[in-house]
Design a protein around this nucleic acid. Structure first.
Lengths: 151, 151
DNA sequence: TAGCGATAGTTGCTTTTGTCAACAATAGAA
DNA sequence: TTCTATTGTTGACAAAAGCAACTATCGCTA
């Protein structure tokens, strides 16, 4: 891999961070912070989660996460129920209000994408999607990056 | 654009944030924080900058930036020289130590990419790069997202 | 089954990052 | 010259994130 290749990849990264990088905007026009929105997303999609799973998936510090969960619970968006099998753990799930909030976030995220692609023809759009799949198909997770801050 | 398309784009965004998203790691194994590293990058690449330009490019609060600059100057990585044409402004530039630090950061960022691509054949690598260029070529900046926080 | 290291989660404390408002100095235009 | 806008600094503060110590429980093993 030559330095020209690397240069182009870094250019793409800058581009991506600036223009796409949609996850950074989930929370816009809601009362949630970005991480709270990501949390809701994760819990909502995966159904039943335990804090430690979220620590791994979202790469958050567990102390930080614990407080985030408390906040969302206080705001009535999720609930902790004791895990029958493991008395240390608590199962997290969305309340009705949490599901509403999540639905709103999803709508906004979808809208954002539509706006981003609004000027493309269907053919162009599909070329972009195909390109994304090429990238996803080839580049694997760097294990060194996977080891983060769950302590 | 149908919901299947949107789904795939959002899947790519999750993938990208998790596995690539290289910019978040610039500073690793240096004494710099992430923002400081981004500052160094920006000043280093653009040559001569003034604080207000950085406020726009990095979307930082000007008070916050002013302190960051002071810190980097204290650490001997950059210098402020008065602008001849505008006595309010100060031109920022890297010192020799700053350039060294920047070179180190660049090496680390490059290494990160090499590790990420190490299992790909040259042909695969170039397919990925080509795919990146397809995306860059088609998707334009959403002006709504460009509005930042310089007060 | 008692003991022990590992794990899930909480809490206190610190650092990093970011925000807001007030201010001084200069610029640029009326 | 005077008025408004711009550049940068400073103080005060708040939010986000990370680190370490701790409790309770788990699950293995001697």
């Amino acid at each position: 891999m030559n330095s020209q290749d690397i240069h182009q990849i870094r250019a793409f990264d800058r581009f991506y961070t600036q223009t796409l990088h949609l996850t950074d905007k989930y929370h816009l026009q809601t009362t949630l912070t970005l991480v709270e929105a990501r949390l809701l997303l994760e819990i909502g999609e995966n159904g039943r989660n335990t804090a430690i799973q979220l620590v791994q998936e979202l790469r958050l510090d567990k102390g930080y996460l614990s407080r985030l969960i408390t906040r969302l619970e206080t705001n009535g968006l999720l609930q902790r129920t004791p895990d029958k099998r493991d008395k240390r753990a608590k199962v997290l799930s969305l309340t009705a209000a949490g599901r509403d909030q999540l639905a709103l976030i999803n709508r906004r995220a979808d809208d954002q994408i539509r706006r981003l692609f609004v000027d493309l023809t269907p053919a162009e759009t599909h070329r972009v999607i195909a390109a994304m799949q090429v990238i996803e198909g080839h580049v694997a997770v760097d294990p060194q990056l996977k080891t983060p801050n769950q302590q």
